[in-house]
């Protein structure tokens, strides 16, 4: 935590005279304990209207627990959360009417047909008449299931089930949609189609809060919150987040024996840390001096480490994630 430019935590608060809540979601010091274990630790952030807000973190970081609290399914231990202006502690039922939720289990009734699933969810959201018909068509359209209304959900491939589940989750036209690892177990093409749907929702003014541990998906988000061990480790757009490396440099080294190369690199004064990226090694240098790469190359030759390529690279989201998690760990 020496040169830590902690990317801005969303600032807000302040009096706002507009009608309607200033933020789609507003979270202050949200905490949840399970016995002695703190699953979510004083989270504070705001999500803007119509934003695609990503929750990035490893398994068990507290993403799902946070979402469950925001949906009114789990009572927070302390702190507050306003969802579309409604306090989740005070009126979880009102929250439920305003949100849509979908998890990676794409919870549909497998024995029922596409149409029967849609009608059931419309029923429990109290939709009927013209609204029901309009939203039913909408759900079928976004799922791409035109003409397959009578297919059983069990017979649909992953991508279709996923989009149908999303369609069912937003039948009641919620202002905010929570997607908890929505793309788990789905092929890359379906994932891409799904993200096109998310973009479309966002463009129509719906706020989307999505958790993921796919870094390529995280790039789609307007802003990202990196959660580690229940705490907010960083927050901002991908460009904001990459600025943690503004005064450092990242060098990629291709070596026949990357593990040995890492060991040598770690001993060098200039090197802050190293990590393995596929077959290459990324070394974070303590400074962004223009001659840093040349210096590193000389050091490797001196240490008799054969390296095919030593190049300066732009930080990727993965570099950011590892760096943030690393420093969060060091702080703890």
């Amino acid at each position: 935590m020496t040169n830590g430019v902690r990317p801005m935590t969303a600032a807000s608060g302040g009096a706002d005279l507009r009608v309607g809540p200033p933020h789609a979601i507003s979270v202050r010091d949200l905490t949840r304990r399970f016995g002695g274990f703190v699953a979510v630790d004083r989270l504070t952030f705001d999500v803007r209207h119509g934003e695609i807000f990503g929750f990035l973190g490893s398994n068990g970081a507290g993403k799902s627990t946070t979402i469950r609290m925001l949906c009114g399914l789990l009572v927070p231990t302390s702190g507050t959360a306003l969802v579309d202006g409604v306090d989740v502690m005070q009126d979880p039922e009102a929250v439920k009417r305003r949100i849509g939720y979908m998890s990676q289990r794409f919870s549909l009734y497998e024995q029922l047909t596409v149409d029967q699933n849609i009608r059931f969810f419309a029923g429990i959201y109290g939709l009927r008449g013209a609204a029901l018909e309009r939203r039913r068509r909408f759900a079928i359209e976004i799922a791409g299931l035109d003409g397959r209304e009578r297919t059983r959900a069990a017979d649909l491939a992953g991508g279709w089930r996923q989009r149908l589940a999303l369609g069912c989750a937003i039948l009641h036209e919620p202002a905010i949609v929570f997607l908890d690892e929505p793309t788990g177990g789905v092929d890359p093409i379906s994932r891409r189609q799904f993200w096109q749907l998310i973009d479309r929702l966002s463009a129509s003014g719906v706020t989307v809060l999505v958790t993921t541990h796919y870094l390529d998906e995280a790039e789609h988000c307007h802003r990202l919150a990196i959660i580690h061990a229940g705490k907010l480790a960083a927050l901002g757009s991908t460009d904001d987040l990459k600025r943690v490396f503004s005064d450092r440099a990242i060098v990629e080294i291709q070596a026949p024996n990357p593990v040995e190369a890492m060991r040598t690199l770690d001993r060098l004064d200039d090197v802050e840390k190293t990590s393995l990226f596929g077959t290459a090694v990324h070394a974070v240098l303590k400074s962004a001096r223009p001659d840093a790469v040349d210096a590193l190359r000389r050091e490797l030759v001196a240490a008799a480490i054969p390296a095919q390529a030593v190049t300066l690279v732009q930080p990727s989201l993965e570099d950011v994630f590892l760096d943030v998690v690393d420093r969060q760990g060091a702080r703890a």
């Binding site: 949906c71 399914l73 039922e93 439920k96 009417r97 949100i99 849509g100 939720y101 979908m102 998890s103 289990r105 919870s107 549909l108 009734y109 497998e110 969810f121 429990i124 959201y125 109290g126 589940a165 069912c168 989750a169």
Partner: peptide
């Protein structure tokens, strides 16, 4: 099946 969670998310 996980459908319970989906149903619980609805105002039912």
């Amino acid at each position: 099946m996980g459908t319970m969670e989906q149903v619980r998310m609805a105002p039912l």
